[in-house]
Design a protein around this nucleic acid. Structure first.
Lengths: 239, 239
DNA sequence: CTGGCCCTCACTATTTCTGGGGAGTTAATA
DNA sequence: TATTAACTCCCCAGAAATAGTGAGGGCCAG
């Protein structure tokens, strides 16, 4: 039944996609191929905003956003803690608000079965790829078992595209830090005070301050904390 | 030439693996199957420590660790900023120290060609899956083009195993921050002073300090800068 | 061989942050 | 219902960070 050919084709098409329409088309094709109700890729923003491509009813998406459901959605919470794909049945659906949310979702046409794959990119980027259907547990388990690998790959490709389309999310490049500046930022990031850093680097605290200031300047940061945060999120230091 | 069967088999075996030996065996099988010099999965620790499974010469691994090469290794730096797999040729190998590092690596038996796949897990976990070979550019490009999808999947499976085997390695997981604490950490990370943060959140600076302190406590941080750095590298906040 | 960047050290005054303490209200949960 | 957790506000003294300016030696590339 399931041959690799079609997925391969769609992945190849997805790789070439350069418009949002092409991506949406790929999702529709995949949904048709897998014969499931919904297939959604969405980026989960730190600010609680979500956006992406997929087949969820627009009303549900709007309602979800409006109600700020990201705060209680167990799929978000569960996937955020995990690395591997998660069947919705294995999530924690206890709690009054959560149960109400679940009931409402089904009302809006979301299937009773779901399978979500968390994906993470640089700078704490987080996204979800979800397939969703209405069927019984046995059928669903068979589906997810059979297609897990394809789904993981598809998730990966969608995220790659999404990162391409969000260049403002791409790492801003800045002047590189000097070795001493990197040392200073790194030690500060692991919790050393200025005195400790100066001691560790065997330099005077005065000198250290020069490094911190020049790093701050290079990074366009307004204080030490900001400088360390930028150095971290630009990948200039690793902590 | 390349059929899916063997990779499928190894992935299935890897999924069942419950000892380090089984994992190491899987890597050896995969290396044999792909006919390349080296294949390595390694976890990149927040402290700059690395460990994993693979076929790099032990001397090189020890030397790398000893010299703290993680600080200059362009593969680490490059993959940390990217989502998609990276051919080593596309990394930045300029700089005296980096060139020396590269020369030394080849001396130790590391191939001239490489392809690394960054993988990220919860709480800012970061790992790399690398394949590595000695051949010319054309051959290497053909190899990576052909096998990219399999390699991505393999990377995923290795990381999944690693997370299973190192549950305590996610000690970086800490109590979640409260919404207000996240607000505070986020605003501090983008350079706001305490006064500005308090103003933005429409609370008194005293209250803000309570949040910062409790966040610091939850994160086990010794000061604000440390707390923000940890929140960032654990993926609790995004800047 | 000169300009630019890196490393090192020093001083002062002002602003900001830290680390203790205590105390009350709401909301959700067990 | 009792308990927990989050959110809000307040005081103070001491420690740390910031913004200025200045200066000398080393190294590398144009």
């Amino acid at each position: 039944m399931v041959t690799n050919t079609t997925v391969e084709e769609v992945l190849a098409a997805l790789e070439q996609a350069d418009t949002l329409e092409a991506i949406q088309e790929a999702i529709l094709k995949l949904r048709e191929y897998f014969r499931i109700d919904n297939m959604v890729y969405h980026w989960v923003d730190s600010a609680g905003e979500q956006y992406g491509y997929g087949t969820y009813p627009l009303e549900w998406a709007a309602h979800y956003q409006e109600q700020n459901y990201i705060r209680i959605d167990p799929v978000i919470a569960g996937c955020y803690k995990r690395f591997h794909p998660v069947d919705w049945k294995r999530l924690d659906w206890s709690g009054k608000a959560v149960k109400a949310f679940q009931a409402e979702a089904i009302e809006y046409g979301i299937g009773n079965q779901g399978y979500s794959i968390p994906i993470r990119g640089p700078n704490g980027q987080f996204a979800l790829f979800t397939v969703n259907h209405t069927c019984d547990d046995t059928e669903w388990e068979e589906f997810t078992e059979t297609n897990r690998r394809e789904l993981i790959l598809i998730a990966h490709y969608f995220n790659q595209k999404a990162l391409e389309f969000e260049p403002n999310r791409a790492p801003e490049q800045s002047q590189p830090l000097s070795p001493r500046e990197i040392d200073a930022m790194t030690l500060l990031a692991i919790g050393y005070s200025r005195a400790q850093v100066a001691d560790t680097l065997s330099i005077s605290e005065h000198t250290l301050r020069v490094y911190i200031e020049s790093a701050r300047f290079k990074l366009g940061a307004s204080n030490t904390t900001h400088a360390v945060a930028r150095a971290l999120s630009r990948g200039l230091i690793v902590v």
